[in-house]
Design a protein around this nucleic acid. Structure first.
Lengths: 351, 351
DNA sequence: TTGAAAGCGCTAACAG
DNA sequence: CTGTTAGCGCTTTCAA
């Protein structure tokens, strides 16, 4: 294994000088720098992370996280991922601060992001809304030296370092793929979405419908319901709607929250109490895989769900940001990380 | 963060003594040991892995790997996982030796395992056949101090430390789950398996049929073909069989290798050359997700495949074994690691 | 039975 | 512009 010491010996300089070259610090004679760099390349020197981590642990790193996890199991799993990564790197001076907020409120998001930044952090991980004020605020702070990355929801027009999360369009396509496995005939679709201002939700719908189109499936979107992830709203509205259109709807496509409420309505309307089996239930497709969703898959209310690995999203985003900060802001850490669409049906639903 | 130094100060002993206590080394007065242990518990001391890794890198660790990867893409991916983990830990004195062998030959397996052990290794990672001679050989070496773990195929009756790989029964169930999404009517099934002496292959069949049974699907297994992962055999045999039974077979269930050969036969028999679409093609279900399989999913020959993350299997097994060896054989590293059954259809098949 | 000290690879502070 | 040195947490060797 090649160490700084060996490089130094080969170049006839001190370890300090090699260190300076490696970190592009000023104060090295150009020809010495060139020589050292050449040797580094030639010997394929790779920094030893244990050594580095040990030596740098004195200056602590704080990562702030702002996520809309209030009343949302998915984000609680994501936060578990944050915590797991924190646990792994706390030895090396990492601290995290997590702020849970409510979804959909741009103003609240902005406020909490500002508060988090003001509290003094080195980097920010955020799941928020595509909103010009928020993006401006983030960009301003990025210019001032804050390191920002997006988790679960990207802000493509911002100056964020990287994005860790799903490809919403692809997950919508996958959902449609399952539907076409089940049936090739005409579908009358009830779509239950979180909010029409959420990019990810819209993308899931777009991917879904595009794929039906591609596959030559005849379909009609009977209604798009916005329930803002509220289970009670989902229950009442879907219940009312399905009562009126019980035998017309062939597919219920639940894009975000509202799974529990909708499934409750489905059970009431389609489950035969005597045989305890569904009669003419529409196809039911959902996203994510929290405990409740899992129960509905097991009991046969949901045909399939698409998981997006919330835990990994949390874990990877912290881990990437930590490495980025700890290892000299190396570019190799700032690539986006797209989770794959995990298709879950009854048989592989076991946790 | 709690360090050995702090423990030592609190206990009024030297760091050496604390180290001795932590590693249960002899030569510490019982009361001192008790005191130090109490302080460790109280302060919730956790060893700092960077420090440990740095200090122990002098004594190199060699892990030997024996896998039946000859002519098998799946295991090449698994080996990539070995190499990725190796790359990560090579800084800390890890070396790996990988021996590729051919599947199904117990004698060859035994020979190569013996050779690998004789070449001088600290630990062995192996994918092999459930065979009494092999198990005896491994157990003898385990008794002599060799550390052994199973990758991809478990040897439950051996003294191996842990197993990293799929749950074959569950993956078979998942496959049947997809089939029942597509159709509830009677299935006439052609099963193409690797070998009837392979535990995993049998389990996949068992899980598949059990699930059809559970779901009240009427089915008949028309034929079980053993093709020993040979594509040519698969092509010839499936081609011959399907020519005779073209319109009877409703499902082709390919348990192991032979996907390429079988798909070639399917294309020849069912693909309409003019419209370039399938006419009355049976359902086709496979396992794993090598490049060829992926192509057949994209082009519509295969309905679904179940992936078992070969790369992760390789990566995790090396990583677990390395940590186990590097960190005092701590028990926390020797739990089994069961991969989940990844359901892949056309829409989420993109790599 | 215990302590002291050196050293793993790297960084940072200080001295020149 | 460059070298020296101390120290991050841990293990190991030597000495007591």
């Amino acid at each position: 294994m090649i160490t700084i010491k060996e490089i130094a010996k080969k170049a006839n300089v001190s370890r300090g000088t090699v260190d300076r070259v490696i970190h592009n610090r000023k104060g090295v004679k150009p020809e010495v720098e060139a020589l050292v760099k050449a040797i580094i390349d030639q010997l394929e020197y790779k920094t030893n992370s244990a050594g580095k981590l040990l030596a740098t642990k004195k200056k602590p790193i704080t990562i702030g996280c702002v996520v809309p996890s209030i009343g949302n199991d998915f984000f609680l799993n994501l936060i578990s991922g944050f915590n797991a990564a924190y646990k792994k790197y706390s030895d090396y001076g990492l601290t995290i601060k997590v702020k849970s907020i409510k979804a959909y409120r741009a103003e609240e998001h902005l406020n909490e992001i500002k508060k988090m930044i003001a509290s003094g952090i080195d980097a920010l991980l955020v799941t928020t809304i595509i909103d010009p004020c928020i993006i401006r605020c983030l960009n301003e702070n990025i210019d001032k030296g804050l390191h920002v990355a997006c988790v679960n929801t990207d802000l493509p027009t911002s100056k964020r370092l990287f994005y860790v999360g799903p490809d919403y369009y692809l997950s919508g396509k996958t959902s449609a793929g399952v539907l076409t496995l089940m049936s090739k005939s005409k579908q009358n679709i009830l779509i239950i979405t979180g909010s029409s201002s959420m990019y990810g939700h819209n993308e899931r719908i777009r991917g879904f419908l595009d794929t039906l189109e591609d596959k030559g499936i005849d379909y009609n979107v009977e209604k798009i319901m916005e329930v803002e992830d509220d289970e009670e709203t989902a229950y009442i509205e879907s219940s009312n709607f399905l009562k009126k259109h019980k035998n017309e709807i062939t597919t219920i496509y639940i894009v975000a929250g509202g799974v529990h409420g909708t499934c409750k309505a489905i059970k009431e309307l389609y489950l035969d109490k005597i045989s305890n089996t569904y009669i003419n239930r529409p196809y039911v497709l959902t996203f994510d895989r929290c405990l409740q969703t899992n129960d509905f898959i097991i009991d046969g209310t949901i045909d399939a769900t698409i998981g997006q690995q919330p835990f990994s999203q949390g874990y990877k985003s912290i881990s990437k940001m930590f490495h980025y900060l700890a290892f000299n802001h190396e570019e190799s850490y700032i690539n986006d990380e797209i989770m794959d669409a995990r298709l879950i049906i009854k048989e592989n639903a076991l946790f």
